[in-house]
Each structure stands twice: as structure tokens, then as C-alpha cells.
Design a protein around this nucleic acid. Structure first.
Lengths: 243, 243
DNA sequence: CACGCGGTTTGATGCACATCAAGGCGGACG
DNA sequence: CGTCCGCCTTGATGTGCATCAAACCGCGTG
């Protein structure tokens, strides 16, 4: 029973069959085949709503390509992003029908859809799959809790630095300076960070003026020294946010 | 395969054997026996640290009696509570050794401890147990995400009202006015809400002055009309915070 | 009873971020 | 080429909460 490291799967494999290994890291052929037999694909353009808040979810899906956001909102219109979904992440919790939040495509998104009843049957029958999903959701729980610290205690500057650090670390290669394209608009960033658009913009400008980062167009961010950015973020250690 | 409603189990049964049903709602005798054979008990006084941040966790435990808090902190001392553990909740995530947060007893606490390796073996072998744990952790994830909305977007008054509403709803009986004893000090409330002690105190005073709640000593809270409090909290609907 | 102590309340002041408002930049399209 | 529209930036002003400071309350202890 060998386990494939999820990080590896995420960065190296963007084709769907491999994605299933993320769900079922310790499965062998037959289970993978069974997963494969119940899947279908669907794509969304950036900005489109994938799941409306309160909607029933007849499917379970995992992201193959792209980035989606998960948002919860109040009646008066205030919104808080509560999750960022990246390749291999799941939408539509198994075992509960209604979505307590809205899911929107941040970039163009392709998802791999599984029929819900079939998926749940499989889950009940193969401990590996259930165990793997448990691990994944516990990772998400840790990430959500880390984010609570960001929302509750960090300053605007630290919040922005934290988000940039996550994006840059995730995109990190050997090349210097580090470079990444933000998958989010300023508005989405503000929704994620519990700030307003203007504050996000100002803090990014300030970090740039202070030489912590440089910008490349509207979406590109460059950073020579990630550790400086992380200090700005208030983290000493890597922290491992967003699974 | 019958499922016992977790809410029911929580409110009606504070004895440990029933607690296990929360873990293993759909298990029959032999599995419950097996759980029972690997357990032991331990108690803590209010204020004592149960698990230090970064510590290894040789056990998995579930709360039998009392209330514990789960806190994450920054190097400069800023702290954010990221979870409130109540009877039947779990400590020490299966599958990961180190605790990314500190667990402290808010009231006197009794926990039921399971040997970690034995518990994990059992999990791997009985799909029911893994499935039940998955459900529980997804509930926790929903609660954490709800809390992100509170931390990121609500005003101080709304935050305090939200917390009071949760406590009152949880304690709710037929009797009017609703009455509950806060299991948390002002400091713990502030840590939970992303506020300072002073602000919490001021907002409670304000809610009292406005006739939304009344106080009974330091810990007791009375409320004639929960719906008014919930409006103050910014929720129209019940919202179902904290599992 | 005086005393100290942890938890709480209340007041005065300041600052970080929201809000309101105006302008800039780049891409799509007539 | 000019115009519009989304998205972003920057400035001016206001306010909600943090911070600093002091006093209060209930309780255990000498």
C-alpha cells in the first residue's frame, strides 16, 4: 500500500486520471477504473457561477484545471470568501445535499464530475477512499483555521502579504526572482482578506514602494526574497496555509 | 444501518459509552466493544493546558464533559481561537501527529482517550467509523467557514450578539426567558471574536442597555427574544454555527 | 477587617481601515 | 481613431475599534 504524495500529484499532473489518485492515493487499478467509469467533464469561464448558495448538489466534483472561489454572504450583501479551490480540491461535500456557499470560477475552470449516489456507494465500500477524503478535509479544516487567524488578528498589510506569499510559494520554482500571476482580482482578494478593494490596492502599492515586491502588469507579482515577504506577513515559519 | 442523530446524542447522553455512538453512529456491538476496549479517561481543571501547540499527540480523544478551546497564536503574542470543543468533539486529528494549535480547558473537562495506533487501525478496517469521522470533520469545516464570515465581516456588536446567540440557542429549553451560563471568560470571548476584552465588555453592556439581553451575575445571560438577538447578530436564519 | 488578586467595567484618546469621490490605464468595439 | 467599460489607483474624510489608564467587584486569605 503505497501513498502518492498529494503535493506531487498537484504540481505534476493536471490530467484527470492522475487527479483521481489524489482522491484515492492508495488505490489500485480496479478502484481507479471504477472511479473513471462514473466521471464526466464540464468547463466554466472565469466569473461564471458554478454552484449557487443553497442549491442542491446532484454531483461531487474535483477541479482539474483552474481556480474557483467559495463564498459565504450575508443578506445585506457583505461577503466573505471562505475557501479557494485549486486543482484536486473537491466541491460538493459527500453526505450533504445543499451547498451553504456560492462557488464561482475565478479563472476558467474544468471539473471532473462524479455522480453523487455512485460516489457515495463507492466511499462506503472502500475504506481507502473514505480515509483519503477524511485526510483531505482535515487539511482543509487546518487551512480554514489558519485563515481565521489571518482574518481575526492580522493587519491589512499582513493580510495582503500573507496572500501574496501563499501565491508565490505555490508557484515557486528554482528561478529568481519568484514570479506568479494572481488568480484573483482585487475585489476577490478583498473578499478573501476581509478588507475593501481600496485597502488591498493601497497595501500592494505600499509593499511595492518599500521594495518587498515588484509588479508586472496588473496580475503579475515578482519577489526577490520570499522570507522578507513572510516577515511582513507576520509568519516566521512557512505555516503551510491553503493546504 | 441506522444513524443516530448527533444532536440528540450530544444533548441527551453525557456518558462515554454513548459518546462512542457519535463516532460510530452506524456501528453495531462488536465495533463499539472494540472502541470501549481501547479507551481510558482523564480530567483537567478549568484553565489547564491539554495540548501544547506543536506537541506530538500520542492519543486521539473525545470530550465527555466540559468545554475546551482551540487556539492558534502568532510569535508576537496575538492569539485567535479557532474552535470551541464541546462534548463528543474530537481532539488530535487521526492521521497527523503534531498539533498546530493549543488546546486549553475552558471549564473542567473530562476526555475519553484512545490509543492512536489502535484507533487508526480500527479506522482503516471499518468504513463506518471513517465515514462518520468524515462527516464530523466536514461539519467542523462548515462551522469554521461560518466563523470566517463572522471574523471578516461582522461588526463588534454583531460578533458579540452572534456568540451570545449560539450559547443561548444551544442551551435553549422551553422555559422563557432563555438563560445560559457563558462557558468563556471575557478574554476567551475576545480571543474567539477577534476583538479586545474591552470591546467585548462594552458591547455586552450596550446590548444590555438596549434591552436585548439581561445579565445575571458575571456568567449568566438572559434573553427574552432570541430573534431580536439574532437580528443584532446579522443572521436572519438560524445559520447553525458551531456544528 | 484590611488586603491582594483575577476578572470586569468604564472613560479618554488615537489610529487603521472604511467610505466617498475622482481620475488613470488598457482592452474591446464601433 | 475615439469612446466606452472594467478594473485599478490615489486622495480626502470619517468612524469603529484598539490602546492606555483607572477604578470596580467578588472572593479567598492573612
Amino acid at each position: 500500500m503505497t501513498r502518492i504524495d498529494l503535493q506531487l500529484a498537484k504540481s505534476d499532473c493536471n490530467q484527470c486520471p492522475i487527479r483521481h489518485r489524489a482522491v484515492c492515493a492508495s488505490c489500485d487499478g480496479p478502484e481507479l477504473d471504477r472511479l473513471a467509469s462514473m466521471k464526466s467533464y464540464r468547463s466554466w469561464k472565469a466569473g461564471e457561477t458554478i454552484v449557487l448558495e443553497g442549491d442542491a448538489l446532484p454531483f461531487v466534483a474535483s477541479i482539474v484545471i483552474g481556480c474557483a472561489t467559495l463564498t459565504r454572504s450575508m443578506e445585506d450583501g457583505r461577503m466573505q470568501m471562505v475557501g479557494l479551490l485549486l486543482p484536486s480540491d473537491f466541491v460538493g461535500r459527500p453526505g450533504r445535499a445543499a451547498a451553504p456557499y456560492e462557488v464561482v470560477a475565478a479563472t476558467d475552470v474544468t471539473m471532473c464530475m462524479f455522480d453523487r449516489p455512485a460516489f457515495e456507494t463507492m466511499m462506503a465500500e472502500t475504506p481507502h477512499v473514505a480515509g483519503r477524503l477524511l485526510e483531505m478535509s482535515l487539511d482543509e479544516l487546518d487551512a480554514a483555521r489558519d485563515w481565521m487567524l489571518v482574518l481575526g488578528r492580522k493587519t491589512a498589510r499582513e493580510k495582503v502579504a500573507t496572500l501574496l506569499a501563499i501565491v508565490l510559494r505555490r508557484a515557486s520554482t528554482a528561478a529568481r526572482p519568484l514570479r506568479a500571476d494572481l488568480p484573483l482580482t482585487r475585489e476577490a482578494m478583498a473578499t478573501y482578506l476581509g478588507l475593501t478593494i481600496e485597502t488591498v490596492s493601497r497595501q500592494i502599492s505600499a509593499l511595492k514602494k518599500d521594495g518587498v515586491i515588484r509588479l508586472d502588469g496588473k496580475r503579475g507579482v515578482l519577489c526577490d526574497d520570499l522570507s522578507v515577504l513572510m516577515t511582513e506577513a507576520g509568519d516566521d515559519e512557512d505555516g503551510g496555509l491553503v493546504d
